[in-house]
Design a protein around this nucleic acid. Structure first.
Lengths: 332, 332
DNA sequence: ATAAAACCTTAAAACGTTTTACCTTATTTT
DNA sequence: AAAATAAGGTAAAACGTTTTAAGGTTTTAT
């Protein structure tokens, strides 16, 4: 019942604890028979090394930490699954921390002898925390902000380009009055997609009309309500098309408009972001800019491993992919 | 750049390391001013305690481990999110391990001084591993199999009852020839749902016809192919209704049948399991038995905390909820 | 004035490993 | 036969904490 330690194994095998350690860690100076004997003792006693002791001493853990404050968002699985596979391929494990407050995050990043960390939704490290992270020398890859440092990389979806491309697609379909479904202004993705949208409008000489920007905080329900109340406004003008900051808001918008008697895409085209599982099943099937999560996960791990190997931090941007389905119509 | 330890803090504050430890752990005998001084030093040096050292000594971690071999399955988020919230409420953290092989799982369970573990998809512990787990005295809750022991509980979705209820629903709609879309025979849920299905058939005196059981391994694609090839068989008879072991196989089946020219639910009713996000958006919207994942997660954590408090292990079963949508029709 | 109690602080041991440097013994080389 | 090398083991230190038991002051009670 008491926990079996390396000492018990040593006694059982009639050797010193150093020898047990050597046997387990494949140190080459060990005699084959001795090793055998140790392994038998390990087997017999069901010995499993204590990782805290091990990490404490060796300083390494061959473990990567993935930090996020929420697991919602349906692309999450895909991201993590890809990460785990890539880490595994390289002989690392990933452990996932779902933590809400930054102090807890810091304490786990710094206190666990992780070889490196992946940070998905940081909820805003402040300057001081960022500095302790930098100062710690722990390799880190951020997935939600652009940043680079000696030991810090980041890999972000190129939301600016995505917003730009999607808007241009709508313009090329012949649309003029193009609205935007915004998330919170604090969200990097929302801001960048909006920037891209504005840039495309500007490039084609289309004037931006702020009455066509509706804030739905990237939530289906919130967007539904916002759009619904906008649509009921006496001076409401339906845009030709709408660029939604994400698929959820696109869906909320379509539902709201449908319930107000409009028909999508006949009365208005709409394009989303992310390509959720749901989007292909939705009616109308959603045209959207796919966020290549699996690729992002894989590359994030690779970048982290590079940092661990001693390479310099860098920023990398990933292009989205326009998935054309049935939610947009060409203007006749 | 070097890692700052408790020793550095002690020196900075001009006290012993014991005092630093006491200050940080709110030991009540400490003088208020001393504590203040220590805390200042901590702040100044950006000291964050090493958790490996801490756990090694104290044996406790106020951390729960959640073990799974895959994050797929769209209910995963919901489950984990609920768990994290419940753990947090009780002052615990959860860390998630996505591991494929049992030895790695064992090594993390036993080696990390976790206060307790949640096991989602065990991939089959063998007898010996189960015994080391039991012997370790580490409290564990299984979410995918029925088991109870001194320090082991389990909480499972009542798949038997779900299968029984769903089948009875189909029978009450007037269906007679009712088929089953099976997963792998090694899957607890598939087996239990099948048992429930058989029980309902038996109760209503309907003979089981094995030609109407198709194995699709709970995967949309596999099921699609299986159903498609079944449908093309010269002696194929379309059942009145089908009980799918999960929503994914239901969707695969519907797609296959639709592509073969059948119309669902007109030609055949079908009912799924799980209530995926997708299921409500699918056409036809899927009637399904909802697996109350959030509730399961919450209760699993509660049961684990009870074990940690010293209570005896137990098995608990959770009822599914029949969500009626448009994939079943009453027989005229 | 002395004894007892209360209050803080700390040295040292412990947690379970890995690693370093050293020690045997056996083998090879000279 | 002596010296050098190799092979295999090990004692002890170290990793960064917490905790125990034992201080040393100061205050309170006798």
């Amino acid at each position: 019942m008491r926990k079996v330690t390396i000492r018990d194994v040593a006694k059982e095998a009639g050797v010193s604890i150093s020898t047990v350690s050597n046997a387990l860690n494949d140190v080459d100076t060990i005699n084959a028979q001795t090793k055998e004997r140790v392994l038998e003792a390990v087997e017999k006693l069901n010995y499993i090394p204590n990782l805290n002791g091990r990490f404490l001493k060796s300083g390494e853990s061959r473990t990567l930490g993935f930090f996020t404050n929420t697991m919602s968002g349906p692309y999450f699985n895909v991201l993590v699954e890809a990460m785990c596979r890539e880490a595994d391929t390289n002989g690392y494990n990933i452990i996932i921390f779902v933590l809400k407050d930054v102090p807890a995050i810091m304490s786990n990043i710094m206190g666990r002898n992780l070889d490196g960390v992946l940070i998905f939704e940081d909820m805003g490290f402040n300057e001081a925390e960022m500095n302790t992270l930098k100062g710690s020398g722990i390799p880190a890859v951020f997935l939600d902000r652009e940043i680079a440092d000696e030991k810090i990389s980041s890999i972000v979806f190129d939301s600016y380009k995505g917003g730009y491309d999607a808007t241009r697609y709508l313009i090329n379909l012949g649309h003029k009055k193009i609205g935007f479904l915004a998330g919170s202004p604090t969200m990097y993705d929302s801001r960048e997609r909006f920037r891209g949208y504005r840039a495309a409008l500007a490039e084609y000489g289309i004037e931006y009309d702020e009455r066509h920007t509706i804030t739905g905080y990237f939530s289906e329900e919130y967007t539904y309500n916002s759009v619904k109340s906008a649509a009921r406004h006496p001076e409401f003008v339906l845009p030709d098309a709408m660029l939604a900051g994400n698929d959820q808001s696109a869906i909320g918008c379509i539902k709201a408009l449908t319930s107000e008697g409009y028909s999508i895409p006949k009365d208005m085209s709409i394009i989303g972001f992310d390509d959720l599982d749901v989007s292909q099943y939705f009616t109308p099937a959603l045209t959207t800019v796919r966020n290549p999560m699996a690729r992002q996960g894989l590359m994030a791990v690779d970048m982290l491993l590079d940092l661990i190997k001693g390479e310099q931090g860098m920023v990398r941007k990933l292009d989205g992919q326009l998935i054309v389905r049935n939610s947009c119509e060409i203007v006749k």
